[in-house]
Design a protein around this nucleic acid. Structure first.
Lengths: 331, 331
DNA sequence: TTGTAAGCGTTATCAT
DNA sequence: ATGATAACGCTTACAA
C-alpha cells in the first residue's frame, strides 16, 4: 500500500504538500496540485486513516450502545442517528448489549481508550455517577432512556405524562380494572410509565392492585406469558396497558390463543409506535414516539459537544402522540 | 489523560516495561509489575488505542455492511456476527446502505483506508470485479447474498433449491396459478429464488405468466402494493409466493383488506423465517434461514482470513428449512 | 506557495 | 528482566 511518502516522491513535492492537497486544496498552486493528484491516482493512494486519527486525536467514530438491535424501536432510532452521522462524515460503532451491564462497561472503556470521539447511549442501566463522570470527560448523549435528575444531555419524551394520557383514554372507554405490563423496573423509563399509569388511576379514585401489575423485559414472549398470568386471575382485567408495543403484541396473541377477543373481551394498548403495531389484527392503539427524530436530535446534540459548544441546557423533550387504533375498543 | 509515559515515570520504569505489563505480563518481574499496575490504577491510565492501531497496523474492527438494519432478518444475522466478534475482541462498524450503491463504496473505501481489518457484506450490489479486487487485498466475506461464480468466501443457503422446495409444496396443495413477488432483480439472490420457482413450475408442465411475476424491494409496503395489483387481475392467482417474509406479510394484509381470506381464497408463503411470521394471523409458511448461524459462520470465515489462514474453499452453504404453518392452506 | 521537522502514543527490536 | 530508541503514517507549526 502506497503511503504519503510514495506520493510525495513521485510528485516531487514534500509530504506536507500532499497532505495539503487532500485537506486544504485551495492553498496549493494548481500545477502542483495536479501533479500530486496524478501521483495519487497512479499509486491508488488512500491515506491511512489510523495515522490521521492518532495525529489529530479524533476518530470520526461514534459508539452507539443499544440494548437490542433486533427491536425495531431501536433500529429505527439508529437510522436517525446514522442519517446525521453520515452527513457529517462520522461512522458508527454499534454496541449491542443484550441488557448485559458488563457489555455497557466495555463500550465505555472503548470510549476512554479513544476508539471513538463520543457515545450515544440508548440504554441507561449504568449508575448515575458513572455516566456523569464519563460525561464530564467525553461527549455523551442519552437517548430514549434517561437518568433521574442528571445534567447529561438527553433526548426523550415525557414518559409519565404519555402514560397518563393513555390511561385516561382507557378510563374514558369505561375501563376500571386495568392490568399493567411493565418493563424492567431498574430502568427509569419503565418506572415513569408505570408512575403515569398509577397517578392517573389514583387521580380518578381508582386503586391499582399489585396483582394487576406485572414486570417483564419488554419482549414479545414476556408479554405473552404475563398476559396468561393475568387471564388466570379470578377477576381478570378488562383492559391491559403494556409498557411497550412488543409486550402488547405478545399479550394480544395470548388473549387470542385463550379464545377471547381483543378488544371486546380485553382491550390492549401499547407504547412506542413500531410498525408492527399497524400490521397485526387488531391494529394496536399506542403512544407513538418520534423514533427517527430522537436519533437525529441525539446525534445533533452530540455533534454540538464535539464542536465544543456548551450544551448546558441540552435536554430535549420531544412530542409523542396517542395513536388510537382498534385494539382499545374505540375512540 | 495519562499516557504510557506518565505511568512509566511514576513507576520508575521505561515505557517498554509498561507496555509489556499490559501485553506480556509473564515477561515482567512480579515486583516491577506490581509497581506498574499501581501506577496505572493511580493515574486511571487507559492505553490510547489509536496509537496501538497505528503501530500494530490493525484495528480490531470489522465493517458490517447491511442494506437495512430495521429488517429483522439482517439484525438477526448481525447478532450472530457480533456474538463471535465480541468473543474475539473485535468491534463492529455498522454500515447501513439503504440499498444505496454509493454508500457501499464509501464503506469499501473505509476498509482501504485501514479503518477496519476486514469487511462482511450482507449485500452484494457491487460489481463482481470490484469485490474480487477488494478481496485480493483485504479480508472480505459475503453473507446471505453472493456473487455468481466468484471465489470470494461466502456464507448462504441454496436459494434456488429452497425456492423449488417451496413451490413444490404449493403445487402439492393443488395450486396451479401462482403469483410471485420478487425482490430487486439486480440482486442474485432475488434472481435465484425466482429461478427456483420458475424451474419447478416448468418441470411440472406449468407456465408462468409474466403478469404474475412482480418485482418489489423486499419491503412490507411493496408486498402490499404488488398484491393489490395481482388481485386486480381478471384472473388472479390462487397462491402467492413472496421472495421474503416482509413482502409476504404485506401481501397478506392486502388480501385481508380486500375482504378475502388467507389461505382460503389466496394462499401466501414467504422466505426468510423472521419472528413476525409466527405472530401474524394466519401464521406464515416460509423458508427458514439460519440467520444467527449465518452471521456466526461469516465472522468465523473472516477470522480465518485475519489470522492468515487460506480460505481457498471458503464457501459455505447452510441448510434451510421449509416451515409449514397456516398461511399456505395446510400440509 | 512550499518544505522541514517535530510530534501523536504505542510497540517491537536490539542492547544491556 | 529491563531500557533506549526507532518506527507506524500522517498533520501542522514554523521557516524559507
Amino acid at each position: 500500500m502506497a503511503t504519503i511518502q510514495d506520493v510525495a516522491l513521485l510528485a516531487k513535492v514534500s509530504t506536507a504538500t500532499v497532505s495539503r492537497v487532500m485537506r486544504q486544496p485551495e492553498t496549493v498552486k494548481d500545477a502542483t496540485k495536479e501533479r500530486v493528484l496524478e501521483a495519487i491516482k497512479l499509486l491508488d493512494y488512500k491515506p491511512n486513516i489510523l495515522a490521521r486519527h492518532l495525529r489529530r486525536m479524533e476518530t470520526k467514530t461514534i459508539i452507539v450502545v443499544v440494548p437490542d438491535i433486533t427491536n425495531p424501536f431501536f433500529s429505527e432510532v439508529f437510522l436517525g442517528i446514522e442519517s446525521i452521522a453520515q452527513e457529517q462524515g462520522y461512522q458508527l460503532l454499534l454496541g449491542n448489549t443484550q441488557n448485559d451491564l458488563n457489555r455497557e462497561f466495555q463500550y465505555l472503556d472503548l470510549l476512554k481508550q479513544k476508539k471513538a470521539d463520543g457515545i450515544i447511549l440508548l440504554t441507561a442501566r449504568l449508575k448515575k455517577q458513572i455516566i456523569e463522570e464519563l460525561a464530564e470527560q467525553f461527549p455523551v448523549v442519552l437517548a430514549c432512556e434517561y437518568i433521574e435528575g442528571s445534567r447529561v444531555p438527553t433526548v426523550s419524551i415525557d414518559n409519565v405524562s404519555s402514560a397518563k394520557k393513555m390511561t385516561q383514554h382507557l378510563l374514558r372507554l369505561g375501563h376500571q380494572r386495568i392490568g399493567y405490563l411493565s418493563g424492567p423496573m431498574d430502568i427509569i423509563l419503565s418506572r415513569d410509565r408505570l408512575r403515569g399509569f398509577q397517578q392517573c388511576m389514583t387521580e380518578h379514585g381508582l386503586s391499582t392492585e399489585s396483582i394487576l401489575i406485572q414486570e417483564g423485559d419488554f419482549t414479545y414472549i414476556a408479554g405473552y406469558n404475563l398476559m396468561l398470568k393475568l387471564m388466570a386471575l379470578e377477576n381478570p382485567p378488562t383492559a391491559v396497558f403494556a409498557g411497550n408495543d412488543e409486550m402488547a403484541i405478545g399479550a394480544i396473541k395470548a388473549i387470542k390463543k385463550h379464545g377471547l377477543n381483543v378488544p371486546k373481551d380485553i382491550a390492549v394498548v401499547g407504547f412506542d409506535g413500531i410498525q408492527l403495531g399497524t400490521i397485526i389484527q387488531p391494529r394496536l392503539t399506542t403512544i407513538v414516539q418520534p423514533m427517527f427524530e430522537m436519533g437525529v436530535q441525539a446525534m445533533k446534540l452530540l455533534l454540538k459537544q464535539l464542536e465544543g459548544e456548551p450544551v448546558s441546557e441540552g435536554t430535549l423533550v420531544l412530542q409523542e402522540k396517542l395513536w388510537i387504533r382498534n385494539s382499545c375498543g374505540s375512540l
